[in-house]
């Protein structure tokens, strides 16, 4: 791999990282607005407020970068980066087309899962270092949520890896067959729920429950560092959606010619992202104990059952 290729791949991953979350964010603005009988942003950029998030970004840059006096300075400053960068790594490892991924490694499933778990560490760091009780409670809730939902998430992905006999996302997508839609359905549901919880999105947004915790671990953040947390959230939606599209919806498999496979992947990912937004608009927030109950009493047994089912299927040669 030449230096030029490395640079090209890095730039492509960075461009996707900067564009796709904004697309999802804008979609959330507009879809949520229409689901609530509103229009959403209409002015920025001229046409139906397409540049609203760019305008938001400009505003965030102008804000003062405050660090509370009681904060653990370096951890506080580092936390947004810890929250953001892992999603960049995860996004780089996601294949969108046969042989097209910015980062091609044999164990990309493990890499993506590990990277997304690190992202939640940023929230924990932010909550711990802010010197604020709301932040601390938010951070601890985030940590508890991470521990609870990581297990069903990994088990659901392990089921697909078992079915496909590989730990490479590209290979798994190649071996995908429509039969998986039914066979892996329980795992898919578990992954969707656990993924939304992993992202701390409603209805699993107890760590930032604004009625109880102001803004949870992000309470003390301003300006660009706050924007990085928001960007991390939307990048997380992109990663989870694309991961779901690649593992459960067959990625680039579709009736169109093979050259348009990347379009299929992105389209399926966008559909999943829309479902994540839809769920956010429709459902109220769970209580902290309900969240833990759902994870341990429902999702985990369901994921384990899926793994058993998959193993039986693999042994039986389905």
């Amino acid at each position: 791999m030449t230096l030029l290729e490395v640079v090209a791949r890095a730039v492509a991953a960075l461009a996707a990282f900067l564009v796709l979350p904004l697309v999802v964010g804008q979609a959330e603005h507009k879809v949520m607005a229409h689901m609530q009988g509103r229009l959403g942003p209409m002015y920025a950029g001229g046409f139906h407020g397409w540049a609203q998030l760019v305008a938001d970004g400009v505003k965030f840059v102008q804000k003062e970068d405050l660090v509370p006096a009681a904060a653990d300075r370096w951890v506080f400053r580092l936390a947004p980066a810890v929250a953001l960068v892992p999603y960049l790594v995860a996004l780089a490892a996601l294949p969108v087309h046969p042989g097209v991924a910015a980062l091609e490694v044999p164990g990309s499933v493990l890499l993506v899962l590990a990277a997304t778990s690190v992202g939640a560490l940023g929230t924990l760091m932010a909550g711990w270092s802010s010197g604020n009780k709301y932040s601390l409670i938010g951070g601890l809730r985030a940590a508890a949520q991470l521990v609870s939902y990581e297990l069903p998430l990994v088990l659901a992905v392990a089921s697909v890896a078992l079915a496909g006999g590989s730990l490479s996302l590209a290979t798994l997508a190649e071996r995908w067959s429509p039969w998986w839609l039914l066979w892996q359905l329980p795992g898919a549901l578990v992954f969707l729920l656990a993924g939304v919880a992993e992202l701390q999105r409603p209805p699993f947004d107890m760590p930032v429950a604004d009625a109880e915790l102001v803004m949870g671990a992000w309470t003390e953040y301003t300006g660009l560092r706050f924007a990085f947390f928001l960007l991390a959230e939307y990048a997380g939606i992109v990663v989870v959606s694309l991961l779901f599209a690649v593992l459960w919806l067959g990625g680039w498999h579709g009736p169109l010619p093979d050259a348009l496979g990347w379009l299929w992947t992105l389209g399926k990912g966008l559909l999943v992202a829309l479902a994540v937004i839809w769920v956010r608009v429709s459902w109220p927030r769970l209580r902290e104990d309900q969240l833990q109950r759902l994870a341990w009493l429902w999702l985990l047994p369901l994921a384990l059952a899926q793994v058993v089912l998959t193993a039986a299927g693999v042994v039986a040669g389905w």
Partner: peptide, 21 residues
Amino acid sequence: GVLKGLAATARTAVRPSHTAE
């Protein structure tokens, strides 16, 4: 209730919005 919630938001999304521009 969860499905009814999804249906309610989807129904609202395909109807004209109430915003007065």
